[in-house]
Design a protein around this nucleic acid. Structure first.
Length: 303
DNA sequence: CTTACGGCCTGGGTGC
DNA sequence: TGCACCCAGGCCGTAA
C-alpha cells in the first residue's frame, strides 16, 4: 500500500534513471484507470522526462515535448493500493496486470502494474497541475511544528481522519497514521482540536520519525508494494500496531485492539493510547467500562 | 461551511 | 474443488 514512504522510495529510484530520458513509444493494456488514454498515447512519445517528484502520494513527471514551441506538461501517477512502477530491460518477464509500457531511449522499459487498478494516470497542463497541488495539504516532512499544529487544530474531526485527509497533510495513509498515533500515545478517536500542546508536539515528532524511518527501510511491503527496481521494502517488520490485533503492545504488553475510526480500520493500544472521555471509538457501545474521572490525562504518560 | 457515512472501483484471501 | 463474501485505501456524492 503505497503511502508517503513508499512513493518517496519509488520517486528516488526513478530519479536515478529517468531524468534526461526520452520516451520512444507507449503501449497500453487496460485503460479504465487512465483519464485520457489517447492523450497519453499522443503526448508521451518523443517527449523527454526532465524530473520526477513526489507530492503527497502523487508522482509527478515533468515532460518536455519535442516541438520547441509546445508547452511543457506533466504526467501524474497515483499508485492507488496496488500500483507498481518499475524500470527494467524489455525482455524482463511481464507480471500479470501490467497495463502501461513506456519504451525509453536507453533501451529499457518503464512499466506500470496495478492488480486492482485503483491507481490513476493522467496528463496535466500547467493550470490543472497547480490546482491539484493547491488542494494538497502540507508535506509532513517539510512542515514546521507550528504549521503542523495549526492544521490539526483547525478542524473538529477525529485525529485519525485529519491525518488521513490529503488536504490537511499530503501523504499519510492508514499504516503510518496508526503507527504515528501509537508512538505519540494518542488514541485515533480523539478530536484533533482537543489535543494538548504536548500531545501535538509528540504527534509531530512521531509522524516525522515514523516516515523518515520508513523511508530508510524503503517502505512497507504488506502485499504488493515494490520499489522502482522491483524490490520489497522492510519497514513492515518494524510495525508496532498495524495489523497486530491481539498481539502484545511493544510498550506496555496489553493486547493491541482494532476498531473502525473515521470509517477506517484502526489499530491501537487500548492502554497506552487513552480513548477520548465522551464518545470512545464509535465502534464500541457506549456505557461500557466507565472511566474514573480525571484519570486519562495523567495516564497517557504512564506507559 | 463542517463532518459522517455509504458506496464504488477490483481481485485476493478466507471460510464454508 | 468451487463459490460467496469480506476486505483493502482513496475518493466522491450525499445527508445532516
Amino acid at each position: 500500500m503505497p503511502e508517503l514512504p513508499e512513493v518517496e522510495t519509488v520517486a528516488r529510484g526513478l530519479r536515478k534513471v529517468l531524468p534526461g530520458r526520452r520516451i520512444l513509444a507507449v503501449r497500453l493494456g487496460k485503460t479504465d484507470f487512465i483519464e485520457d488514454p489517447p492523450a497519453v498515447e499522443q503526448l508521451l512519445p518523443n517527449s523527454r522526462i526532465r524530473d520526477v517528484r513526489r507530492h503527497g502520494k502523487f508522482l509527478l513527471f515533468d515532460l518536455k515535448p519535442p516541438a520547441a514551441n509546445a508547452p511543457a506538461f506533466s504526467l501524474l501517477i497515483h499508485l492507488g493500493m496496488t500500483g507498481q512502477l518499475v524500470v527494467c530491460p524489455p525482455e524482463a518477464p511481464i507480471p500479470p496486470h501490467t497495463h502501461a509500457f513506456l519504451t525509453l531511449d536507453d533501451g529499457r522499459e518503464f512499466r506500470y502494474t496495478d492488480i486492482r487498478r485503483f491507481g490513476n494516470i493522467r496528463i496535466l497542463d500547467e493550470e490543472t497541475r497547480r490546482k491539484i497541488l493547491g488542494n494538497l495539504g502540507i508535506d509532513p516532512l517539510e512542515a514546521t511544528e507550528n504549521e503542523f499544529a495549526a492544521r490539526i487544530r483547525s478542524r473538529g474531526a477525529r485525529i485519525k481522519a485529519l491525518l488521513l485527509d490529503q488536504s490537511v497533510l499530503g501523504g499519510m495513509g492508514n499504516i503510518y497514521t496508526d503507527e504515528s498515533l501509537w508512538r505519540a500515545r494518542i488514541h485515533p478517536a480523539r478530536l484533533g482540536a482537543k489535543l494538548r500542546a504536548d500531545e501535538l508536539r509528540r504527534l509531530y515528532r512521531a509522524v516525522r520519525d515514523v516516515l523518515k524511518e520508513a523511508i530508510r527501510f524503503r517502505g512497507s511491503s504488506i502485499s504488493d508494494y515494490v520499489d522502482a527496481e522491483g524490490n520489497q521494502g522492510s519497514f513492515q517488520r518494524r510495525h508496532r500496531v498495524y495489523r497486530r490485533k491481539g498481539e502484545k503492545c511493544f510498550r506496555c504488553g496489553a493486547a493491541i485492539g482494532r476498531a473502525i475510526v473515521a470509517g477506517r480500520s484502526s489499530y491501537f493500544c487500548p492502554v497506552c493510547q487513552t480513548p477520548p472521555r465522551k464518545h470512545s471509538a464509535s465502534a464500541h457501545r457506549p456505557g461500557k467500562l466507565p472511566r474514573p474521572k480525571g484519570r486519562s490525562r495523567r495516564r497517557a504518560g504512564a506507559c
